[in-house]
């Protein structure tokens, strides 16, 4: 599987679009593992998160998974569409189904994110 080259990635199968802020979603690999998504629970805007901390949950017909903050910072925006249209995650995981936007508080954490090649290598082993 190939992954968008303009994004960065985590071991937890999240992608980040890095600019002044970090937009966060889950990868196609994660979507394929989960199957049909039935529920996405996200935190409130303004919430502070620490890297590695659970910030939400995603449920499919068969399973429930935690969403982990890929970097520390303040949650500046939350994608409200996903509350009533969780199926967007299956349809457009890199676009309409972005989940949160974080204002990162530690640039070093952003620099450590995986490159597309590194992430592709990780998923190839799985």
């Amino acid at each position: 599987m190939s992954y968008p080259t303009d994004l960065r990635y985590t071991n937890d199968h999240e992608w980040l679009r890095v600019g002044a802020t970090c937009v966060v979603g889950i990868t196609q690999f994660a979507v394929d593992q989960l199957g049909d998504i039935t529920l996405v629970d996200l935190p409130a805007e303004g919430h502070l998160v620490t890297k590695g901390q659970r910030f939400g949950t995603i449920e499919s017909v068969k399973s429930v998974s935690d969403l982990y903050a890929p970097v520390s910072g303040k949650i500046a925006k939350v994608n409200a569409l996903l509350r009533d249209q969780p199926e967007l995650v299956n349809q457009d995981c890199y676009g309409q189904a972005w989940m949160i936007e974080i204002e990162p508080s530690d640039q070093a954490e952003v620099d450590e994110l995986l490159s597309p090649d590194a992430y592709a290598a990780l998923t190839a082993e799985a």
């Binding site: 199957g35 049909d36 039935t38 499919s60 017909v61 068969k62 199926e87 299956n90």
Partner: peptide, 12 residues
Amino acid sequence: PVSYPAGTLKEH
């Protein structure tokens, strides 16, 4: 098979 490309919801 746990699901086909249609997905569990459509199969159901």
